[in-house]
Design a protein around this nucleic acid. Sequence first.
DNA 1: CAAACCGGTTTGTAATACAAACTTGTTTAT
DNA 2: ATAAACAAGTTTGTATTACAAACCGGTTTG
Lengths: 100, 100
Amino acid sequence: MKDNQPILEVDRIIHEPARLLIVTILYTAEKADFLFLLNETGLTRGNLSTHLTKLEAAGYVNIEKSFRGKIPQTLCSLTPSGQEAFEKYRKQINQFLKRT
Amino acid sequence: MKDNQPILEVDRIIHEPARLLIVTILYTAEKADFLFLLNETGLTRGNLSTHLTKLEAAGYVNIEKSFRGKIPQTLCSLTPSGQEAFEKYRKQINQFLKRT
DNA sequence: CAAACCGGTTTGTAATACAAACTTGTTTAT
DNA sequence: ATAAACAAGTTTGTATTACAAACCGGTTTG
């Protein structure tokens, strides 16, 4: 058992492609609303919703609900913990893939 | 819906950390038996077995059973298709992570 | 005022990853 | 001899999932 298990411990919250995409967008965008993310990711509303909920539950994403006129709006942003987690994930994956 | 969905289509067979580790080892090792992989990955025998079966079912890994003396031996190697899939995966992930 | 639309959330289901139990045979003690 | 431990895997049981589809409360349109 060598020192190559780090990859076995990658953060599954972020490793999931749909969420990796969401987090990557939020990492650069600072803030994004539901419809923007919907458009950028191409996910269905249902799946975007559940992935955001999971990211929120992990403490990685902050979700604020408001209204723009009469229309509800959901604003999402990465928390500091989410940024950290993303950076760590990226480092882990890059390092691992460099081995070959 | 921009051109950033490729990440949503990564090969799930390879994306799974345990299998990514197995495939990475096989990519450089050419051939490896069950016990070697067991040792290198730190997986349990049960999980190593099922992941190998899944990789075999995907056509990514070739499994040959033989005996060394009276003891059974399972030799694993990447198929050409498995090598391709791994290279493609690596390219996809690297490219995606470069965006930030 | 009914039907379609918006911006989401909830639910149903099939696929999974892992742990634990099992299997088939071999070696070691007693 | 034969029971107990060991070796090399495989199978099974379970809890978690990711996705699709249905739903929902409000708003606009015909």
